[in-house]
Amino acid sequence: MPGNFITTSFEAMLGWGRKYSLFHYPFITACCGMEYMSAACAHFDIDRFGAGWTRFSPRQADLILVVGTVTQKLAPVLRTVYDQMAEPKWVIAVGACAVSGGIYDNYAVVQGIDQIIPVDIFVPGCPPRPEMILEGLLALQGKIQKEGHDWRWKKKKTS
């Protein structure tokens, strides 16, 4: 079917384009931030994977990297930042604390940021090595490539 051929090819192209032009917003709070800094700098160089452009405004970012512990006090901030990002948006939880609360199972820490916002990729480790962060980014890129993108006209049809 020619129509299917065109849409799937276009979807693949769009996925390809999106996965290599991620603007990321680093939501850095704690220890893992040091490893994120290593990953972002010249030595490990996140730029090689098409995510070199760090945007410090959530409104300009496609990807939020939640790096480090999110406490109960910080939870509304993370929620606000996530809500400010424009669709399509993706989330990577970097480090044990962001994934599950890690070693801090106590009164102050949120037990995993998936209790606050939806998460696409979990990167474990306390802290994860820069290679792990890059691996998580590659996994997300694979996910973006395969994602079905919501077309404007599709939306119109269904509504």
Binding site: G68, L74, V109
Partner: peptide, 21 residues
């Protein structure tokens, strides 16, 4: 206080050796 992770309280529940982490 945005990174208050309850270090002191948590240590009271860990053994002397284990709280090193």
């Amino acid at each position: 206080g945005y990174l208050h992770r309850g270090f002191e309280k948590t240590c009271e529940a860990r053994t002397w050796f284990n709280l090193l982490i």
